[in-house]
Design a protein around this nucleic acid. Structure first.
Lengths: 161, 161
DNA sequence: GTAAAATATGTGCTATTGCATCTATCATGC
DNA sequence: GCATGATAGATGCAATAGCACATATTTTAC
């Protein structure tokens, strides 16, 4: 049944589900599923892994920074961080300069856990970009960055005006 | 604080948050937020809009088809459809050929609601692809399609092996 | 034909997310 | 200095998503 799906533009225009945003969304959702299955043996979910990855890249971040980088609500980031502290993967201390901020860092256990996931994640990435030339990958990254900039601009536009 | 975020590859390799998948995820999440704010005046959420869009493109689909196209669990699609039937946007009847299947179609009200959203969605899309040449857009779509194929292949690989 | 397996859908329950709100801390104005 | 406003973070609550399972229908194996 699902095999013979064909887009029939009933309205004369281009089919909505052929739009790039639709692909983008479907792609991310499916990739997230795959990430979750790849990470399950390690006891992590994608949201956890993203937090750890951010702190691997930047070392010390606040809850707000993590929320911004992983694009979740601050409340969600707060709870994710809490749970990972309980599990021993993260450590949190109040910033000396501004005690509202928390400085979250990886513990040795967190760094080790992240390292354990590397193989699975790298494998998944390799599958994802299979058959795509280096040049195409760079091109894709460039286009995605441009889209990201546009998205942020839209948000500011909305807020400012 | 969040402004001076710089990627520092503490592990010698490429920073994880610079990986295309990370951009992809962040992009989709932010775009979804923007879609939600754009659709809020119309009383729809992105999930609703996706369902309607699929049925605008294909006319008649089952719950499973909709779940597959929008990449959500079938239970989620089932409830989304139910609620939209209650709101008068969709109609559902059992398939004559196979009564397990439901044939879901847009009502006139549903088609009209979707049409009302078009301006907002088109505007958002224009903002999203602002400054991107026609050629780049086609290129992006091509690359996304390739990624999508790879993602699906990975899933089948996982299931089959 | 009948039994067993498979598929589509719906439902109960849990986990996750997002929104509103609260507290604590800092910045700005006077 | 102090009052007001702004920001970081946490928490209560509601909506959503996902998982496990149940039911109805069809297909497959015998």
């Amino acid at each position: 049944m699902a095999n013979d799906i064909e887009t029939q533009t009933s309205n004369g225009g281009r089919s909505k589900i052929e739009a790039p945003e639709f692909y983008l969304a479907a792609l991310d959702r499916q990739n997230r599923e795959n990430m979750n299955t790849a990470l399950r043996p390690h006891g992590l979910k994608v949201a956890d892994w993203r937090i750890l990855s951010c702190l691997d890249s930047i070392r010390s971040l606040s809850v707000s920074d993590l929320a911004e980088l992983t694009v979740v609500e601050r409340s969600v980031a707060s709870r994710l961080v809490d749970r990972m502290i309980e599990r021993g993967f993260l450590r949190k201390e109040a910033s000396a300069a501004d005690r509202r901020y928390s400085e979250i860092t990886l513990t040795a256990a967190g760094a080790e856990k992240l390292r354990q996931c590397d193989a699975a994640v790298d494998d998944l990435r390799a599958q994802l970009f299979a058959g795509m030339s280096e040049k195409d990958q760079e091109n894709l990254l460039r286009l995605l960055k441009l889209l990201r900039k546009n998205v942020l601009a839209y948000q500011h536009h909305k807020i400012a005006v």
